[in-house]
């Protein structure tokens, strides 16, 4: 009969001492979890993949505003998103006139030489008139507010850029694992 009940000891009620130990262990675990999630510190990670003039704005506007909320913000720039942080290219991001259904011109005209430059110039003028910040101002603002701007190391090499092409306050030497780690800890994750 005893072979049928191999777990007989497991079924026995725990002693008071055992229960106390177990409760203490659980309390410790709960306290640790509370400190982990209980702090009100929100986190946001944005992955910026586009380097056109118009697509540089959303990540920077959201990042600087989130930082104003006191959130911990990381923007991971990869592929053409690197151009937003690239010291030379950042000042010369272009708006694409082709394939943009909101442009008041057919694609056959938009494809003519110089049309991207003209579309960009028109947009810059509107931005200035509207009192909207420039990309450079938004980068400065984001960094001032404590946003961490990261430049993906793999794409720096892929695009034949150099770490020195980026300003000193940009974080280099980071990859997908770093981005994922921040995303896993974040309340909000966006791919732009």
């Amino acid at each position: 009969m005893s072979t049928d009940t191999p777990s007989a000891t497991d079924g026995e009620p725990m002693t008071e001492e055992e229960l106390r130990t177990q409760v203490a262990e659980l309390e410790e675990k709960v306290a640790a979890l509370e400190t982990e999630v209980g702090d009100d510190q929100k986190k946001m990670t944005i992955i910026a993949t586009k380097g056109s003039f118009d697509m540089a704005y959303p990540p920077l506007i959201l990042a600087s505003t989130a930082a104003a909320f006191g959130w911990d913000v990381v923007v991971f720039h990869t592929f053409w998103g690197l151009d937003i942080l690239h010291e030379e290219k950042s000042a010369d991001l272009q708006l694409s006139a082709v394939g943009n259904p909101n442009m008041p011109m057919p694609n056959s005209i938009a494809a003519l030489p110089g049309m991207d430059r003209m579309a960009t110039w028109m947009m810059e003028k509107k931005i200035d008139e509207n009192g909207t910040a420039t990309i450079e101002e938004l980068i400065d603002l984001s960094l001032e507010q404590g946003v961490e701007l990261q430049a993906c190391q793999m794409t720096i090499e892929l695009m034949d850029y150099d770490e020195d092409d980026f300003r000193d306050d940009v974080t280099v030497g980071v990859g997908a694992a770093t981005a994922l780690q921040h995303m896993a800890e974040s309340d909000i994750q966006l791919l732009v």
């Binding site: 506007i61 600087s64 505003t65 930082a67 104003a68 909320f69 509207n130 009192g131 909207t132 910040a133 938004l138 603002l141 001032e144 507010q145």
Partner: peptide, 12 residues
């Protein structure tokens, strides 16, 4: 100034 400046400058 327009978005996001009013909020960010208010914070500062």
């Amino acid at each position: 100034a327009s978005c996001p400046m009013p909020v960010v400058k208010t914070k500062s």
